[in-house]
Amino acid sequence: MGNSCGSYQRNNQRPKRMSEFIFAINEADLADGGKSLVEVEDRLVLIFRIGEQFFCIDDVCTHDGGTLADGNHEGYEVECPRHGARFDIRTGAALCMPAFKPTQVHECQVTEGKVFVKLS
């Protein structure tokens, strides 16, 4: 058993900055249709890949403040594993109850095989 309480992508090196964009994950480490939980600047975010598009939202369900990381996702929607709230990963918008506030969305940029995130 490790001494870390969470299992997610940790960057072993100092984040490489592109202006305000911060390195999050290698493009090759995220398969098409996949998602990954990543720590970016002391914040846990979810990065989704759909084809060549990458999307990033906070790992927070705005209904109860819990994590979305274990939720199912299909197309551009991710579902909270606890109460079934759904969010649009492109805009963060809450798509159904019990959530009604959007979760925070962050801009993604891919450069030379690396995915960078600009925290909002």
Partner: peptide, 17 residues
């Protein structure tokens, strides 16, 4: 986060090391 007492308190970024 599956424990009732901890489900609102996210300590995944805590690393004892």
């Amino acid at each position: 986060g599956r424990d009732e007492e901890w489900m609102r308190t996210d300590i995944r970024m805590f690393n004892l090391d």
